[in-house]
Design a protein around this nucleic acid. Structure first.
Lengths: 328, 328
DNA sequence: TTGTAAGCGTTATCAA
DNA sequence: TTGATAACGCTTACAA
């Protein structure tokens, strides 16, 4: 395009890429034309010729609106920015179909790497070809299904165990579990295991009726209310994710109950201001993104070691709601 | 690539695009090879040949972690998904430089449209060329600077006015303003104007000492505390964005003050559970994203009418904190 | 210091 | 129904 202006064709390329030698006067004429025409070299053409992949990382998350994934994306982006990589994000609405088609789009686009927060029912066998071809693929928050691949997940089980053990340490012997759906979801299962671990370690019996489930804030709220209206209700609750926490807080607030202890998994913005302030097992979403990004970068740099699972530690933030003693 | 398998070259293209006539048997052989090799046509090459732009929309936001922008992105994405467009997101960290370089990357990538939440100090004159070339460009949350272009923004001024008028209606005559930084930011200025509008309409004097500022939650908290410790302190506060709201709530909670009325701009997740529940002027981030997306789509469909500014209405959510009367 | 030819993977055009 | 050829905008390799 800019070749109309000066006189040449590929000299422009030389100028723009600081490639071969260029006469000062030529360079200036070219640059002038470039700024005048607002010329932008076509990246697609360049990549195709060079055989390079698109300088982008494809990220699939279940839901854009969820701040947890927003912070994950933020962690990735800042870790990756220095390398000139941009982030392409798509949301799967937690469905396997959309996830697949997003991944297909990313692959057709020849992204440099793939990062996926798998939806509940998805399967990743079809990515084997790409994996062996050397495309960096990292799974976030939940591991891959049917594929050995890198993954970065929270210390869900240990975190949940510590949260529940905290309640046990304050004297609770009947502790309700408010989980999300579907119950087959990796994080849900792991955190549930942590809950059981804590009970086992304390020699407390597992009571199936103390487990309730809700897939959004309102449903979680109802789930918490069901637990509280049992004949022999729990004296403490453990909420297994941020929506469950919010729902449970809502339920307690509506019921005017300030006597029920509560520990939530995942931190909330105003946790400190609640009454009582909310004790949580905090995750580190930005750290998770950054860890995954570093893993991807090392893979791009040629690290071919075998797939690893990275565990991002959680932190118990003691604020009040988890330290309420059982009534007596 | 798949041409090794069958016998042909561009017949594959015919099959994959349902183009010319293809023998049933040929089609089957091709499809077989495609699935066997996991073949994905190279989108970059296709776009280059067809002269089409990349089927992606470039979105620049100031901060990934902020749920407000996450919801905006979500609104865009779902509105645009049906058209087969994907979303490319970059964050500018609220700096003009990064914003510019992100935009340049998107342009080099030949995105089909550009959506920008401008950072505070940026200027968009350089986008004129693209605009006149017909590239859809929409500014979100804040309008463009130095460029006539489509924009979709909240009804900041009217929303703020109604929030402050609400406080006035409950008898307050000294109302503090907790804003964010920089004070030159469009949303900040508009909401401040709304605040003044409400005072004017009520015949209340404007008092410069009742205006304080903080650029994050902690700073906003300190700002609120400064207002409360004035000799003649305000009986009500208006917080001009979500961070300011959270900081103010924090300050009131720490100071144990339940007697100060508060209206926040932008809703918060647990607003309902706070004590007192938080009255807010709610924005509609997902709606904002959807509106912007529809604007872009109509532009892509050839709508060349002149640039328009779309105002997304706000909604006053009455919950308690804004209805506290002044002490007497 | 600059130009020429070729080719990246795809599709439009025309011929077989 | 299929193939050959050229072209999209760029860069590599080599020649001028």
């Amino acid at each position: 395009m800019a070749r109309e202006v000066g006189v040449t064709a590929k000299t422009v390329s030389r100028v723009l890429n600081d490639d071969g030698p260029v006469a000062v006067e030529t360079r200036e004429r070219v640059m002038a034309a470039v700024t005048k025409l607002g010329y932008q070299p076509n990246l697609m053409a360049r990549n195709m010729r060079v055989g390079a992949r698109d300088a982008a990382i494809g990220l699939v998350i279940p839901e854009m609106g969820n701040p947890f994934f927003g912070m994950v994306a933020g962690g990735i982006e800042s870790a990756v920015r220095a390398r000139g990589l941009t982030l392409i994000v798509g949301s799967s609405s937690e469905t396997a179909d959309l996830e697949q088609s997003l991944i297909a789009t990313f692959l057709a686009r020849r992204v440099s790497a793939l990062m996926v927060v798998p939806s509940a029912a998805s399967d990743h066998r079809h990515l084997r070809t790409e994996r062996v071809a050397g495309l960096p693929i990292v799974f976030l928050d939940r591991p891959a299904v049917g594929l050995r691949a890198d993954s970065v997940v929270s210390a869900n089980r240990e975190g949940a165990r510590s949260g529940v053990a905290h309640l046990v340490a304050y004297g609770h012997r009947k502790i309700g579990f408010v989980g999300d759906l579907p119950a087959t979801l990796y994080t849900r299962r792991e955190r549930f295991q942590g809950y059981r671990d804590a009970l086992d370690q304390a020699g407390l019996p597992f009571d199936r009726s103390l487990v309730e489930t809700g897939h959004d804030q309102e449903a979680a709220s109802r789930a918490a209310l069901r637990l509280l209206s049992l004949d022999d209700p729990p004296t403490a609750l453990f909420a297994a994710n941020n929506l469950a926490s919010m729902g449970t807080v809502l339920a307690l607030s509506r019921a005017g109950r300030r006597d029920v202890a509560l520990v939530g998994f995942d931190d909330l913005p105003l946790a400190e201001v609640l009454d009582p302030p909310l004790t949580v097992v905090a995750q580190d979403p930005a750290g998770m993104g950054a860890t995954a990004a570093e893993l991807v970068l090392s893979r791009l740099d040629g690290d071919r070691s075998r797939a690893r699972r990275s565990l991002v530690p959680t932190r118990l933030l003691v604020r009040g709601s988890g330290e309420l003693p059982p009534p007596r």
